[in-house]
């Protein structure tokens, strides 16, 4: 429990077994990005009032706390606990690999991270899922649209990573 890293195969098997349990006991697949979207809807509602709920997207995806939102809250708590147990918790603005390639200016890192986050949020909703919902849950059910989406995640990701680290 206090080891910093576990074998990727044990971790993968653990996530696979976790997906059995959520299908069996919660009648739901593992997924994250819908909960992020609902949080965005709840923030919009808090800032701009209940008329936000009339937007077509928020009518189809009610901005409220639901099962998946609880899952994501648990995810954060579990990640904090694991980091504390292994003694790796540390506030950090810039990851080591970024600092080595692009220096220690926090604003540069934040600008690229923010742009990436916006594209992720936008793209996850357009494609109806993320690396968890399509990449793991959809793929393990052998759903063709999920396999296609997962391939696109990595094609886009590899292209952007090579542009960032190898070209510019």
């Amino acid at each position: 429990m206090d080891a910093v890293l576990w074998s990727p195969y044990w971790v993968g098997a653990g996530i696979g077994i976790l997906s059995w349990l959520v299908f069996l006991l919660c009648n739901h697949p593992l997924g994250v990005s819908t909960a992020v979207a609902k949080s965005a809807g709840m923030i919009e509602k808090a800032l701009r009032g209940p008329k936000v709920e009339q937007k077509a997207y928020w009518q189809e995806n009610k901005p409220a706390i639901d099962w998946e939102w609880m899952l994501v809250l648990g995810l954060l708590l579990g990640a904090v606990t694991a980091a504390l147990l292994s003694g790796t918790f540390q506030w950090e603005w810039i990851p080591p690999m970024w600092a080595e390639a692009f220096g220690s200016n926090v604003w540069n890192r934040l600008a690229v991270a923010l742009a990436g986050g916006i594209l992720i949020g936008f793209g996850a909703r357009w494609g109806c899922g993320c690396t968890s919902g399509h990449g793991i849950s959809g793929s393990l059910q052998l759903v063709l649209s999920s396999w296609l989406a997962a391939a696109m995640f990595f094609i886009g990701g590899i292209a952007a990573a090579f542009c960032l680290y190898r070209i510019f």
Binding site: L119, W126, A149, I155, A160, A161
Partner: peptide
């Protein structure tokens, strides 16, 4: 959608 997500994934990490 997933291509846009992927580009964001590569930028954010």
């Amino acid at each position: 959608g997933p291509l846009i997500f992927g580009i964001g994934f590569g930028l954010l990490g």
